[in-house]
Lab assay of single mutants.
Amino acid sequence: MTSCHIAEEHIQKVAIFGGTHGNELTGVFLVKHWLENGAEIQRTGLEVKPFITNPRAVKKCTRYIDCDLNRIFDLENLGKKMSEDLPYEVRRAQEINHLFGPKDSEDSYDIIFDLHNTTSNMGCTLILEDSRNNFLIQMFHYIKTSLAPLPCYVYLIEHPSLKYATTRSIAKYPVGIEVGPQPQGVLRADILDQMRKMIKHALDFIHHFNEGKEFPPCAIEVYKIIEKVDYPRDENGEIAAIIHPNLQDQDWKPLHPGDPMFLTLDGKTIPLGGDCTVYPVFVNEAAYYEKKEAFAKTTKLTLNAKSIRCCLH
């Protein structure tokens, strides 16, 4: 018999989150649709729960009410004593943790798909938090293969000092899905179709896995975050240069030392320094102006996964 890495157990509980950011409308629209008619997301033997994560922000069509829901799922915020004085999103995070967690427990949901849009030209993107997770690498390989020839990129946010504390991190297997470009507060049919297909293929993978299909060893190309880059700023902290036209919409493309990065209003080009080629992502993302992030630098690498098969009882 072929030796293989056996994944822990079959997958039982899956959640699909929309509206973690209330103005990213593809996930909101799909989740609302699936709450009314969820036939397309159901798979035999699998509990799939669509869920609106930040209903107040969705109602106002804004990213958040008090603070970013997708950055506060750490033990400090989840452990705060519940009171009306807490920011709305912290209270909501505790409610979500109660419903789908608790985080880092045996009772937490197996998989959470968190649906997002970006204003950046990132196409279909899967966000991975753990480079050693054979199950998710296999799932992402399946999704990428199923979507081809449509490109699907994998963004690895594993980093020693950049801690995200994402909404989906309460699950055993957290999956971020990011599709763009799409303006905030807008629905685009092409973007919706791409996100819908990503979810379909992900659920198909889980179904095949649960039925005992063995997935042979595989490898995927990923883009691992190195650092986030702020806009150049003046002495008052105001933005002093904008994304250069040569960099705009060039997510995932190589940016070499000396290539144009920013452009000042008086026409001066600010190039990339250093001696390493990087791959920019979230270029000129609207939501990241407040976070002082013009783009993120990534490096390209390959992740390998062992063969996996479900432990059938």
Rank of each mutant, 00 (worst) to 15 (best):
E47M: 10
A305S: 07
L75R: 13
Y164P: 15
L312E: 15
F209Q: 02
D251E: 04
E285H: 13
I111P: 03
E36G: 09
P257N: 00
F215V: 00
P55D: 13
L99T: 12
P102Y: 09
D85Y: 12
F135C: 03
I226Y: 08
D114W: 00
P254K: 01
D190W: 06
L75S: 13
D259N: 07
M195E: 00
I41S: 02
L69C: 04
I96S: 06
R56M: 13
L99M: 13
I112G: 03
L35W: 06
I111D: 04
L136D: 04
V58S: 10
T62P: 02
H141P: 05
H98M: 14
T118C: 14
K197D: 09
D130Y: 04
S83F: 12
K59W: 08
I72Y: 10
G45P: 01
F209R: 01
I11A: 02
P50V: 04
G237D: 09
V278W: 04
D204Y: 01
K200D: 06
E95M: 11
T269A: 09
L263F: 07
M139S: 01
N134M: 09
P260F: 00
V283A: 06
T53Y: 02
I199V: 14
I220T: 04
G237H: 06
H207C: 14
L255S: 00
L312A: 15
V186T: 14
S307C: 08
A165K: 15
R91H: 12
F135A: 05
Q182A: 15
K144Q: 15
C124P: 10
V283R: 05
M261F: 03
N236E: 09
S161H: 13
T119G: 05
A286E: 08
K81I: 13
K49Y: 09
P160D: 14
M82N: 14
V175D: 00
D85I: 13
L263Y: 07
I270D: 03
P280Y: 05
E84Y: 12
L128K: 05
Y155A: 15
K144F: 00
H116M: 09
G185A: 04
N134C: 09
R91G: 14
E285V: 01
K144P: 05
G27E: 03
C276E: 15
I16G: 00
V186F: 05
I6C: 10
M198R: 05
K197C: 11
S131D: 09
C67Q: 13
T269K: 06
N70D: 15
V179M: 03
P217S: 09
E235A: 13
T298C: 15
N246Q: 12
F282P: 03
D74Y: 10
N23H: 07
T145I: 10
D204T: 00
D107F: 11
S83N: 13
S108L: 08
E211M: 14
H33W: 07
Y109P: 07
A7P: 14
A294D: 05
Y64G: 06
H244E: 05
N77W: 12
S83D: 13
R309I: 07
K224W: 03
L150N: 11
P183H: 06
D275A: 09
E178C: 15
A294C: 01
Y164V: 14
F295H: 00
V31F: 04
I239F: 05
E214L: 12
L78D: 11
I16L: 09
G267N: 09
E40W: 00
L46F: 13
Y142K: 05
N97F: 09
C152R: 00
K163F: 07
G45H: 07
A240D: 09
V31L: 06
C61A: 13
G123K: 07
S108V: 12
D190I: 02
T166L: 08
C67R: 12
D190A: 04
L255E: 05
K297C: 11
E158W: 03
K213E: 12
E95G: 08
P260K: 00
H208Q: 15
K306E: 14
L136A: 01
I177M: 13
A287N: 14
V229T: 07
V175Q: 04
N97D: 12
C276T: 15
H313N: 15
A39Y: 10
E293M: 15
W34V: 03
H116V: 06
I220D: 05
D230V: 09
E221T: 07
G176M: 14
I127H: 07
I220A: 03
P254G: 04
A7R: 11
L75E: 14
V90H: 10
Y64P: 04
S161N: 14
M82T: 13
E24N: 07
Y88P: 06
P181Q: 00
T277E: 09
R132F: 06
I220S: 02
T2I: 06
Q12V: 02
T20W: 00
F295R: 02
D114P: 02
Q184M: 12
I270Q: 03
K291Q: 11
T2A: 12
C310M: 13
P102C: 09
E285M: 04
L150I: 14
N284A: 08
A39N: 12
D230H: 13
P87C: 11
T264C: 08
T53F: 03
P232A: 04
N210W: 03
P87M: 11
D68T: 02
G258N: 09
A57V: 02
S105W: 09
F295I: 04
P181C: 02
I157E: 15
G212V: 01
L25W: 07
G27N: 02
C124F: 04
L303T: 05
T20G: 06
I177P: 03
M195R: 04
F100D: 05
L30P: 05
K297I: 15
T167E: 06
F51T: 05
F205D: 03
L46G: 02
E227T: 05
I41V: 10
D104S: 13
R309E: 01
I170C: 11
T167F: 09
E24A: 07
G237R: 02
G274F: 03
H116D: 06
A241T: 00
L255K: 00
F100E: 05
I6S: 15
Y88N: 07
L265H: 13
I6D: 15
Q12F: 00
D110L: 02
T145D: 09
I177Y: 06
K297H: 05
G212E: 01
Y109H: 06
I137N: 06
F215A: 05
T44Q: 14
H208W: 09
N117K: 04
C276Q: 15
V58Y: 08
H256R: 12
L255M: 10
C152P: 03
N284W: 00
V278F: 07
H98K: 14
C124D: 05
Q194E: 06
H207M: 14
P55M: 09
C4N: 15
C4T: 14
F262S: 03
H201N: 07
A171Y: 03
F209N: 06
F51W: 08
D234I: 00
V186K: 04
Q194I: 09
D104T: 12
L35V: 08
E158F: 04
W34D: 04
E293L: 13
S307Y: 06
Q184A: 14
C124R: 03
F140K: 02
G180V: 06
M139H: 03
K13I: 01
E8M: 15
V278S: 01
V283L: 10
I199R: 04
F215G: 00
F209G: 06
H33T: 07
M122Y: 05
Q12G: 14
M139G: 02
R43D: 00
E9R: 15
N37A: 08
I308E: 01
Y223N: 06
S146A: 14
K228G: 08
A294V: 05
M139D: 06
I72M: 15
I127N: 01
K49G: 01
A171E: 00
N97V: 10
E235D: 12
V31R: 06
L162P: 15
E8W: 08
G185F: 01
L192K: 05
C67W: 09
L25Y: 08
V229D: 05
G274W: 03
P102K: 11
E285A: 13
Q182M: 05
G176E: 06
D230Q: 14
E95F: 09
N70E: 12
I96P: 06
C152T: 08
D130S: 07
S120P: 01
K224T: 05
I72N: 12
G273V: 10
C61P: 04
L150E: 13
F51K: 02
F209E: 05
A57S: 11
Y109C: 07
G258W: 07
A165H: 15
E8G: 11
N133R: 04
F215I: 04
P183W: 04
N23F: 04
L75N: 13
D74Q: 12
F262Q: 04
E227I: 05
A241Y: 01
A93C: 11
D275K: 09
T62D: 12
I220R: 06
Y88E: 10
Y109A: 06
Y88R: 06
P254D: 01
T125Y: 01
N236G: 08
D114T: 07
T167L: 10
F73P: 11
E8I: 10
R91A: 15
